[in-house]
Simulated assay, not measured.
Amino acid sequence: MLWKTERVKAWQWVRPQLWRADRILGEIARFLPSLSATLREVRPFWGTSEWEKVLSEAWAKAEAISIDYGVMERAEKVDVGDWQAVWEVLPKDDAAVAALGEHFGEDTFNSLVWAMDGKPVVTLGVKGVVIVDTPEALLVAALDRAEEVRDLLRRLPFKPASHW
């Protein structure tokens, strides 16, 4: 079966899982604790007549740093949890295969295939695998061990793509 998912559609499924508001607030607490404390202080005033005044005062005292720099660049790039979490949120075919890019598979089940544009991935007789193809490296791992990828990457003698 040939199943090709447009990356745009795939990201519509994945993106809400990547950076939900609670996740962003958690990362702010981790990397910008003073901003996190300020947000907790102003939260009770949301929707009240005092909101504008309290927010203005808090904003004046807040650390001058963008969320991009203060949080996003410090956070793990793939912290959806792991590749299994990505597999869980993506749409799957009847064999529970979530494919981004061009994939042709026979007797392939419960797997995630992340193919590069213009380079199809062909699978035969595999079950429960993650295949992530990037220009820098190719990852093939057991889906149930996907949470170990981050630790494995730390031990590599080279640095693969940041989206791993």
Rank of each mutant, 00 (worst) to 15 (best):
P120A: 06
R154N: 08
D117G: 11
D151I: 00
A141P: 02
L153Q: 07
V130M: 03
V149K: 01
L153G: 10
A141I: 12
L124F: 07
D133P: 00
D133M: 12
V149N: 03
R145M: 09
G125C: 03
F109A: 11
V130Y: 05
V132N: 12
R154C: 05
G128D: 13
V126I: 14
F109N: 14
T134A: 14
L124A: 02
T134N: 03
A146E: 01
A141L: 13
F109Q: 15
L139Q: 10
L156E: 06
A146M: 11
E147F: 06
E136G: 14
F109C: 08
V113M: 15
T134C: 05
P135H: 07
S111P: 04
L153Y: 09
A142K: 11
P120K: 07
D151E: 15
A115R: 09
D151G: 12
T123S: 05
L143N: 07
F109R: 15
L112C: 12
G118M: 06
L112T: 02
P135G: 03
L124R: 08
A115T: 10
S111H: 11
M116E: 14
L112I: 05
A137S: 11
A142W: 03
S111V: 13
E147G: 01
S111F: 01
W114H: 13
V113C: 14
I131T: 04
W114F: 12
W114S: 10
A146D: 01
K119Y: 13
G128F: 05
V149P: 00
V140A: 04
L156W: 06
A115K: 05
L153P: 02
P135N: 12
K127N: 13
L153S: 05
G118T: 09
F109I: 13
V121G: 07
V132F: 10
R154Y: 09
V121R: 01
N110V: 02
V129C: 00
L112S: 09
E136L: 11
A146R: 07
T123R: 00
D151L: 03
V132S: 06
E148P: 00
V126W: 00
F109W: 14
S111E: 09
P120F: 06
L143W: 08
V121C: 07
V122H: 08
D151R: 11
R154T: 05
R154K: 15
T134P: 01
L152E: 01
V132G: 04
L124E: 04
V129L: 07
P135Q: 08
R155G: 15
L139R: 08
L153K: 10
L124S: 07
